[in-house]
Design a binder for these strands. Structure first.
Lengths: 338, 338
DNA sequence: CAGCCTATTCTAAACGTTTCGAAGGTGTCA
DNA sequence: TGACACCTTCGAAACGTTTAGAATAGGCTG
């Protein structure tokens, strides 16, 4: 910038004024400066600018698992919206690991991001302290954090699972296995609550051994399903609390020599683009990923531009039950013990 | 930092020395300073540091489509390795859009990233000019750029598709449809070349109307497959040049009332975690995503630490043909015209 | 023509670090 | 005791911007 100023024979203040349009500059100087910028090929240094302005036009985005297509879709739209608004996105993922999560958040804050969008891996005290301490515009997506009162966009998890469970119950299933996500997360807890509520509404006793923790990961879900299927009273249906886990569920069913839906009905949280072309066509709960991403981005943008009301805004979206072919009436499930 | 210096009654230079361990400091002052840091809760400002040092410890990562599980997997490991090395990752994706790609790269460079890892959407002149002009450590992944001579890690695409085609040929297929990716990308071109080479080796005439462009996207692949399947001489097998497109291929097969593999054999580039549990079990070419990510990250890390040789390093990995059940001998394909 | 107002331009401080070279203190040796 | 070296600490400049306020020039008014 100093070079430009010299070349155009003006002060840096004037150069800054034409670049930012922050002050009136005579046409003559303006064109001289613009030419000098062209000739020199000058690019304003964003770091220096950030230092002075105290803003980086960058938002930190942390999700638990970028390998999960649900998060991927959401990240893609957030990234898109934010870019259009001139913001860069700094991405972190932590493999559902709480320790790494703390590090990553620190790293983002250290880089002076202007805001944070987070899908937390777990309800960690350290994390909450860090977030509170950072005092940055923050929006939580997918998962809430007890005691952290910020903007957020989440799904009505309880209701979605409640409805799905009701659907399976309606098919006559009485022993429905439930592969749960980590109960450290609000989604893990809410989804399980939906399942239990539906059982209760149907006046079925809650049986602890029908619920197994799969931690939202394929491997753990595989093991959990194995246990479920080799137990004395095998369930006639299984619900998986997310997309990654349902792969593990299906693998376990296959490895144990059973078939879905003939022997076991299966339904899952999160939809797949290929769900109605590969068999069995999975019955799922589809999340409005586009809307989640857009609204999260908008929430942080509003907050950053000071347009938001002081009170945190909490958006709750509804899932959609996609009934396909992986669940059958229990009467058509010959080997079922239900 | 000034506050810390005052509190400990020393100069900022000394504070900086203990924080960075860049100069010897007496035990007494050191402990006094460390205490002051604790008390004040001081965090060094990375922006100011970057300004002085001319380095941000951030690398820009741009992939064509973060919704594509292949890229997702690679991004996840790159992110992981880089984080361990103390680098942050700034992520961009451009939906295979060349214009947006230019913008995004500019945005990354504008943020003063220390290096760039790119899977370019297309062989765009502007992009190449920008990259060359930025004069940053750069590593290309998955796709090369004509005339840009940097570190890179890619797959031996030609050979992988060549082998897969040979496999289908071995099953007796003579009319193999090919849904190609964008020929603006090196992968698009190389994969197609592998297909053609295999046909040639089998002394089969090359027929232009067996090759359709699907641009690596599901929708385009769907249309392309529709054309292929409604043509007068329907192919008995179809190869899809990536994972997203094979969904489109399968949807078209379904919508036209055919079955895979009974009526049409299908194989595809890129593997899926669910490929051997949902039907038909797809025959695919698996890429070593872990290795690609690790090596790309290592390449940029070496370059950033000046450990690399001056000459660019080009790593070529091999794909693996995962033979499953979506391809059958042509003799078992009753309705085939082949 | 002095005085004043406006429009434009400039000077200089500030953002929070790092680091070079200087300064001060202590110890050793002739 | 003076010269010298070494070790620790410090002052101040520099990185590249933005911006408040001062300065300058020109035009207008009384």
């Amino acid at each position: 910038m100093l070079d430009v100023a010299k070349a155009a024979n003006v002060s840096v203040a004037t150069v800054s004024a034409v670049i930012n349009g922050s002050a009136p500059v005579s046409p003559e100087l303006r064109s001289r400066i613009e030419e000098a910028i062209q000739v020199i090929g000058y690019k304003r240094n964003a770091i220096a600018r950030s230092l002075k302005l105290g803003t980086t036009r960058t938002v930190g985005l942390m999700v638990a698992d970028i390998t999960n297509p649900f998060f991927t879709d959401v990240v893609a739209v957030i990234q898109d919206v934010l870019h259009r608004a001139g913001y860069a996105v700094m991405l972190c993922c932590n493999d559902e690991d709480v320790e790494m999560q703390d590090e990553q958040i620190e790293l983002l804050i250290d880089r002076s991001v202007d805001g944070l969008i987070i899908a937390p891996a777990g309800d960690d005290e350290t994390l909450k302290r860090i977030i509170a301490g950072a005092n940055l515009p923050t929006v939580l997506i997918d998962r809430l954090l007890d005691g952290i009162d910020t903007d957020a966009v989440v799904l009505d998890n309880r209701r979605a699972v409640h409805d799905a469970t009701l659907y399976m119950l309606g098919l006559g299933h009485r022993r429905i296995g439930y592969i749960s996500g980590s109960l450290e997360t609000s989604t893990g807890r809410e989804r399980l609550a939906g399942y239990k509520a539906a059982l209760e509404a149907a006046k079925l006793p809650h049986e602890d051994d029908l619920v197994r923790i799969g931690n939202f990961r394929e491997k753990d879900a595989y093991k959990a399903t194995m246990q479920l299927l080799t137990s004395t009273e095998r369930p006639s249906a299984i619900f998986s609390a997310n997309n990654l886990m349902v792969i593990g569920v299906m693998k376990a069913i296959r490895d144990i020599g059973l078939k879905c839906p003939e022997d076991v009905s299966v339904a899952s949280f999160d939809d797949f683009p290929w769900a109605d072309v590969f068999q069995p066509h999975l019955t799922t709960i589809a999340q409005p990923v586009q809307a989640i991403g857009e609204q999260a981005a908008q929430l942080i943008l509003d907050r950053l531009s000071g347009k938001s009301p002081a009170a945190p805004r909490r958006l709750v979206l509804q899932g959609r039950l996609m009934i396909r072919e992986s669940c059958r009436p229990v009467s058509l499930t010959p080997r079922a013990i239900a």
